[in-house]
Amino acid sequence: MTITTIQEELIDEFSLFDDWMDKYEHLIELGKSLPLIDASLKTEEKLIKGCQSKVWLHAEMTDGKVVFTADSDAIITKGIIAVLIRVFSNQLPETIINADTSFIDEIGLKEHLSPTRANGLVSMIKQMKLYAVAFQAQQKK
């Protein structure tokens, strides 16, 4: 599926909830369904700086595509990670680097993306894109 299709799908999915509570409950469910990252990967170097809750992000290349796994000790954060992984995982590095993130605004999670927010998920997206840049550089070698 293309990154745009996944984003549209997410926007549709979240538009079913008019109430913030339902939206958050859905997010929490998504968080619970997130496949856990291998315990051996929960290291200091996989930790994303700048989050109030702990977020571990791991990336590897499989068949030319970047596969992300992640975890957090906070469930709402995990829900947001689940959304981001759905969008960014299993994509070509170039697609990830060029991906637009305005879908987050459209599904009503913009508040989590403010760079000044304590749990700024901006740093998470940035980290995902950085992994993509690194993999792309490796490929070019």
Binding site: W20, M21, Y24, Q52, S53, D73, A74, I75, I76, T77, A118, N119
Partner: peptide, 18 residues
């Protein structure tokens, strides 16, 4: 996690620190 609690109570207009 305290962050989760803080996020939900903020949605209800309550300012606490986490």
């Amino acid at each position: 996690h305290p962050y989760d609690v803080g996020t939900i109570v903020d949605k209800l207009g309550i300012a606490v620190r986490t």
